[in-house]
Design a protein around this nucleic acid. Structure first.
Length: 519
RNA sequence: GGCCCUAUCGUCUAACGGUUAGGACACCAGAUUUUCAAUCUGACAAUCAGGGUUCGAUUCCCUGUAGGGUCACCA
């Protein structure tokens, strides 16, 4: 329990209408960083007032992504206590109750209803009976004469009797906020500076379909107030919602939180991020083998920088160095190449045992191996048992080559497969003739068949000694390496030879000879 | 169209009014390699335009231009 009303409280308020994406993660991250930096709380609020589009599945997916990336939030509602009326906000303290979160707006209808009723009772909101068609026509007209297309308040001054009469006639209605006329609403945006709006450009906007069905702008301010949110960090697309929210908060007699509107994340064309620019779902990044720490690091630098040349940051370091002042004012183009670079960097930094564990699901997923015991696997192709230890060795060879975990399968599939497919021409190094390749392979067979201790250092010694005798080392090394891996590029010849084992190496070298002879 | 926001290398960005405008990714070249990667070295590359203010402007002001956001009974 805490009574510190000075405490920073931020929130991440996604609507469960789709998976988490890069943009939503950055919003979550910056709110998280700010609260952690200042020792405050971070709230997760699910904005599921739109019953049609919201799905619990999306909510679960959102939470899964957040957890994967290492977020934690202060669960459970903050109770406003010590008050007779929830509308009395002059003196309140907050208390945290665990294990009840996250907040779900769909479960808070009664709360919104009270505030809605209050607005209605005090004349700050009214019932509107205009049809959608009427609104649309008005909007088009206003745009045609060069004015802000807003609701002009046809139903604004309906008397109580008129309202009752229309309701009794069964006319459909919504609840609109009575926006103050000819007023300037300003707020000090923590990123953009002072922003001013004229209420004339706002119009009387809809805040609820009915008492039980409040809409976004309204539930948002009620919750931010009820949860004592102090700082709202959100995307720039919300700038135009801000004066509306402040006007409602004013009507409720509440102070508004600090706002910070972050620039948008843009696609290659400097347009809104689309499928062509980035994965729509964070799940895709998981499936591609991106590391959560790489994503966090990358996303943090989309519109923020520490002002130094340091750019590799763990979550902990981000918390330490984060500051709103350093958030950029202009939009940032999402750059997948840099993400890949950072991901590769984190992969190289991973302890090998940990990296192997991360790669295993990808190997299993691409049907190369299947789990056998705790410490071993069975190759799908040949049903042979392969120890985790040996897989670890393979992963180690490719650690510095990987940009994404998913690439591991293509890199080391030759270790698990019985037969490897490659073009015969791949065996040829530079200008070698078929005869030279065959002779090269035969030399290799002769050399390695005599090696007792089939280890990298030993194989290297023998093979390289022979290669030195050639006009070009590649004459021995290239056909040898290709015969074993079947690939244009791979780890070193001795390394993969050790990995494969003597017997398999000999088999593959013979096979390579046959490939040329009988092609 | 109204309102609002923004403007430094291709991209992410640094530069309390005074710097040869710095760094990173990408790209290119070199070193190292049998290959690929990693690593190291180097090269290329930017202050949107026009006016002010100032001894001096990337930085402050204005105008223009361009881009973006928003104008839902979505969030």
């Amino acid at each position: 329990m805490t009574n510190d009303s000075e405490k920073i409280i931020t929130r991440f308020a996604p609507s469960p209408t789709g998976p988490a994406h890069i943009g939503s993660i950055r919003t979550a991250l910056f709110n998280y960083l700010l609260s952690k930096k200042l020792g405050g709380s971070f709230i997760l609020r699910i904005e599921d007032t739109d019953k049609e589009r919201s799905k619990v599945e999306w909510e679960h997916m959102l939470i899964r992504s957040l957890k994967w990336l290492g977020f934690s939030w202060d669960e459970g509602p903050i109770i406003v206590e010590g008050q007779e009326s929830i509308f009395d906000r002059t003196n309140y303290s907050i208390r945290y109750i665990g294990n009840k979160g996250p907040y779900r707006q769909s479960e808070r209808t009664e709360i919104y209803k009270k505030y809605l009723q209050k607005l209605l009772d005090e004349g700050h909101a009214y019932y509107c009976f205009c049809t959608k068609e009427e609104i649309e026509a008005q909007k088009n007209y206003l745009m045609s004469i060069g004015e802000s297309p807003v609701y002009k308040g046809t139903c604004r001054n309906l008397t109580k009797e008129e309202v009752v009469e229309r309701i009794e006639q069964g006319k459909k209605c919504v609840i609109r906020f009575k926006t103050p006329e000819s007023q300037k609403i300003s707020f000090e945006d923590l990123i953009k500076g002072k922003i001013t709006f004229d209420t004339e450009t706002l119009g009387d906007f809809v805040i609820a379909k009915d008492l039980e069905t409040p809409l976004y702008n309204f539930t948002c301010i009620v919750d931010d107030f009820e949860m004592a949110v102090t700082h709202v960090l959100r995307g720039e697309e919300h700038i135009s919602n801000t004066p509306k929210q402040i006007a409602m908060l004013n009507a409720l007699g509440a102070k508004h939180p600090f706002y910070a509107h972050m620039p948008l994340i843009l696609g290659q064309e400097k347009k809104k991020l689309s499928k062509r620019d980035a994965e729509t779902s964070l799940d895709e990044y998981y499936k591609d083998g991106y590391l959560p720490e790489a994503i966090i690091n990358f996303v943090a630098f989309l519109g923020w920088n520490p002002g130094t040349e340091k750019e590799i940051y763990s979550m902990k370091e981000l918390i330490a160095d984060f500051s709103i002042e350093k958030i950029q004012k202009s939009g940032a183009v999402f750059n997948p190449e840099k993400l890949d670079w950072i991901n590769g960097l984190y992969i190289r930094k991973k302890p090998i045992a940990e990296l192997t564990d991360l790669c295993l699901p990808f190997l299993i997923g691409s049907k190369l191996i299947e789990p056998y015991t705790e410490t071993s696997f069975r190759t799908t192709d040949t049903q042979q048992i392969i120890t985790k230890n040996r897989i670890e060795k393979a992963v180690l060879l490719y650690q510095e080559r990987m940009k994404k975990l998913s690439e591991i399968s293509e890199f080391i599939d030759f270790l698990f497969k019985n037969e490897i497919n490659y073009e015969k021409s791949l065996l040829k190094w530079k200008e070698m003739t078929d005869e030279e390749i065959i002779s090269s392979l035969k030399i290799s067979i002769g050399l390695i068949s005599h090696i007792e201790e089939f280890e990298k250092s030993e194989i290297e010694k023998v093979i390289f000694a022979e290669a030195e005798k050639m006009p070009n080392r590649g004459n021995i090394l290239w056909p040898f390496r290709v015969a074993l891996s079947g690939k244009q590029s791979s780890a070193g010849p001795a390394e993969i030879a050790e990995l494969l084992g003597k017997e398999k190496c000999l088999d593959r070298l013979e096979l390579a000879i046959k490939k040329i002879t009988y092609a």
